[in-house]
Structure formats: C-alpha cells, structure tokens
Amino acid sequence: MPVATRSTDTRRIILDTAQRIMARKGYAAVGINEVLAEAGVPKGSFYHYFASKDAFGEAMLKNYFADYLTDMDGVLAHVGQSAAERLMAYWRQWRETQSVEECQGKCLAVKLGAEVADLSESMRLALKEGTSEIVDRIERTIADGLADGSLSVDSEARELAQALYDMWLGASIMAKIHRSPAPLDTATAVTRKLLHL
C-alpha cells in the first residue's frame, strides 16, 4: 500500500474512532490517548496527522458532516417518492438514530454543539458550516415539495427549514435528558402539522 494511502487510512481510522467515542462521552471527557489506543495507532503519531487537539476536533467534525450529508443526500434523493415522502423519511431516520442506546444518539451536532461552541472557534465554525448545509438541504426539499404539490407551508421555505432543524435538534437533546423518544415523537407530529401532512 502506498504511503499516502496508509496515511489517509490511519487519519480516517483516528477520526472515525474519535467520533464513536465522543458521540458517547463528549469532547472534553475524551483524551487523545484514549482515541489512539482504541484506534490501535501509536501515541507519537498523532501530531503527524493533526497540529493540535482543536485541529483534530475540527477535522473530526468536518469528517462527520461529510458522511452525514452524503447519507442525507441519499435519503432525500429517493426516486419515485414525492418531496414530502423524502423529507419525512429523513425525519424518520433522524428519530431512529437518536433513539438508540437509551436515546444517546449518534449525532455529533447534538452531543458536542453546546460543549465545543465556547471552547474552540474552529470547531464552532465547522459545526456552523455543517448544520447550515443540513438546513440548505431541508430548504431545497421543502421547495421541491411546494413545486410537486406534496407540501404546503405557511412561511418561507428557509425560515421553516431552520425552525424544523432547530426543533429536531432540541428534541434530540430532550430525548437524551429524559431517556425517552417522546420528544422526537412530538417533533414528528409538529413537523407533519407545519408541512400540512
């Protein structure tokens, strides 16, 4: 295997391992040594891949959002479904991923958002960029639903997309607090009302 490929693979292994651990524990509670040990990467090689823990956190969030947006694009691009069906499939997937393991979820925006926004400007900006791209996709799907007649809304598509994302993010946090998917079920019901479904 070429050195560049090995280097890219090792970097990805570190990022994927960190994402799994931090989705459970948070950012501050996880040390680099824990990530490297679980990834099976020698301790001394961390700074070969990342200049600092902040640079590592930023890279992890960018990696997470790249994967998330690819998955989201797959859900929102299902051929043969109306925009309303595709958008509701996205929310169903969200509910499923946030209700696992006693509502501990898999979303780094939920787990790390409030924690790192005050700790690291580069990580805050990575979160801002990633979540903005999610809202962009929701907005486009709402606009598609208005065009294909599968949705009707009482506000601008962008405003509604932002409100829906904010509501689902808040519902995910409440699901974690209550260890119950009930807030996600409420978000689903309110989403259907806002989209007139």
Rank of each mutant, 00 (worst) to 15 (best):
P2K: 08
V3Y: 14
A4I: 14
A4D: 11
A4W: 12
S7A: 14
R12H: 13
I13A: 13
I14Q: 01
L15T: 00
A18Q: 01
R20T: 14
R20L: 09
A29C: 06
G31V: 00
I32C: 06
I32D: 02
L36D: 03
L36C: 08
A37T: 13
P42W: 09
Y47A: 06
K53S: 03
D54W: 03
A55K: 06
A59L: 01
M60C: 05
N63H: 15
N63R: 15
D67I: 07
D67L: 14
L69S: 03
T70R: 11
D71V: 05
G74Q: 09
A77P: 04
A77Q: 08
H78F: 13
V79Q: 14
G80M: 06
S82T: 15
A83R: 00
R86E: 04
L87C: 04
A89L: 09
Q93A: 07
Q93H: 10
W94R: 05
E96S: 14
T97V: 10
S99F: 05
E102W: 12
Q104V: 10
L108K: 03
V110R: 05
E115V: 02
V116I: 12
A117M: 07
S120E: 04
E121D: 12
S122E: 06
R124Y: 08
A126E: 07
L127H: 03
K128R: 14
K128T: 13
E129S: 12
E129P: 03
G130E: 00
T131Y: 04
S132P: 01
E133Y: 03
E133D: 09
R137A: 05
I138D: 01
I138V: 12
T141G: 06
D144H: 07
S150W: 01
S150C: 07
S152W: 12
D154E: 14
D154M: 11
S155H: 13
E159F: 09
L160H: 01
A161G: 03
Q162M: 10
Y165G: 00
G170W: 06
A171K: 02
A175H: 01
I177P: 02
H178G: 12
H178D: 15
R179M: 13
S180W: 09
S180V: 13
A182C: 09
P183H: 01
T188H: 09
V190M: 14
R192C: 10
R192E: 15
K193M: 15
K193Y: 15
K193H: 12
